[in-house]
Simulated scan of single mutants.
Amino acid sequence: MTANTSPDAVAKIAELTRGISIAMLTTVDPAGHLTARPMAQQETEFDGDLWFFVEKDSRTAQNIAASPTTGVSLSSASTWVSLSGTAELVDDRAKARDLWNSMVEAWMPGGVDDPDLTLVHFTAEAGEYWDTPGGLVASAISFAKAKVTGERYDGGDSDVVDLS
């Protein structure tokens, strides 16, 4: 499947990611295994970049320092987004202050000036989404219709998007 490069497709990814606060950040560990962990997304205006807070000595930070290839998955009751790209560790106190909120403080009680605090800057290169407008009710109706008619289940919109 060829990736969609239209501004509408990029805007669709932005719209779908905006309402999802927790993402799964996937990195590559030293043995080459994929490792995913939940992370709180810090910016709601998706432009291909996402920001997360981590501790400098965390496995997440170590994995990113060794291999910047990363993935981010976001999901809600009716939407799934998968992003692939690269991540870098950014030690920028001004950006950290800009992104700081009470949710972060619960995980990082040392505060925004904690010397062990750093940012993960994720840059998406490609994305794929699955969206079921109407949520679970619409999905259930489409599923039932497929079973009754013998036609293939149409769960909604999906696309592969080039974000680079």
Rank of each mutant, 00 (worst) to 15 (best):
8 D>S: 11
145 K>A: 10
31 A>L: 12
11 A>L: 13
156 G>L: 14
28 V>G: 05
141 I>H: 05
99 L>N: 08
140 A>E: 07
104 V>Y: 11
151 E>W: 14
139 S>K: 01
140 A>R: 04
90 V>Y: 08
33 H>Y: 15
71 G>F: 08
57 D>T: 07
140 A>T: 12
19 G>D: 14
33 H>M: 04
128 E>L: 11
150 G>A: 14
8 D>G: 11
6 S>P: 13
141 I>T: 11
93 R>L: 14
6 S>D: 15
70 T>L: 04
10 V>C: 13
125 E>T: 10
62 Q>Y: 08
19 G>N: 10
91 D>I: 01
43 E>P: 00
60 T>M: 10
83 L>M: 11
74 L>D: 06
147 K>C: 11
29 D>R: 02
85 G>T: 04
151 E>K: 14
128 E>W: 08
62 Q>G: 12
158 S>W: 12
85 G>Q: 03
56 K>G: 05
110 G>I: 04
56 K>I: 01
110 G>V: 06
162 D>L: 04
143 F>Y: 14
119 L>S: 03
112 V>N: 04
84 S>K: 04
121 H>F: 01
160 V>D: 11
51 W>K: 03
152 R>F: 09
136 L>K: 12
1 M>G: 09
51 W>H: 03
134 G>D: 15
76 S>Q: 04
23 A>S: 13
126 A>I: 00
59 R>T: 06
157 D>V: 00
149 T>D: 10
155 G>K: 06
164 S>G: 15
19 G>Q: 10
152 R>V: 11
43 E>V: 07
20 I>H: 02
163 L>K: 00
157 D>S: 06
11 A>P: 06
15 E>N: 07
111 G>D: 03
59 R>N: 13
138 A>D: 15
49 D>T: 10
144 A>I: 09
66 A>D: 09
100 W>T: 02
48 G>D: 11
147 K>L: 13
116 D>N: 12
24 M>K: 01
119 L>E: 02
86 T>W: 09
14 A>K: 00
152 R>D: 15
15 E>S: 10
147 K>N: 14
92 D>G: 09
109 P>D: 03
103 M>F: 15
